[in-house]
């Protein structure tokens, strides 16, 4: 019973997000063609079609080119790229964490050496 209730809460939260997304789709901003939209929500580079849509489509083209309908080992490049991004972020955050921890420990050690402030 508890699990059903919690599942319903998660689904309700997801529904709120989806509702906001659909509400955004109805706004004038989202209805505007790509080139006229301020700041351009365009992701793909390249020339735009006169109807305002970005060239190609999700189902026919991806950033590296090629067809997404068929499975291909060339997709491993995408996996590798994403894995590299995640690894870089992890390395950066862990390194920062270690540096700050070290600095904090040094500060505490210095405070202990000098004694409590009178």
């Amino acid at each position: 019973m508890k699990i059903i209730g919690r599942t319903l809460i998660i689904l309700a939260a997801a529904l709120v997000v989806a509702g906001a997304l659909f509400a955004f789709r109805q706004t004038e901003y989202a209805r505007m063609p790509g080139e006229t939209r301020p700041g351009r929500m365009r992701i793909e580079a390249g020339e735009a079609r006169p109807d305002g849509f970005a060239p190609g489509g999700f189902e026919h083209r991806n950033r590296a080119g090629g067809d997404e309908h068929q499975a291909s080992l060339a997709g491993l490049v995408e996996v590798g790229k994403n894995l590299a991004i995640i690894a870089a972020i992890v390395a950066l955050v862990v390194m920062l964490e270690r540096v700050t921890r070290g600095l904090r420990q040094r500060t505490v050690a210095r405070q202990v050496e000098t004694g409590p402030p009178s």
Binding site: N62, Q70, V79
Partner: peptide
């Protein structure tokens, strides 16, 4: 997640 972010690997 890694597999899902690579539709070229899995197919659509």
């Amino acid at each position: 997640f890694l597999a899902a972010t690579a539709p070229r690997l899995t197919g659509i």
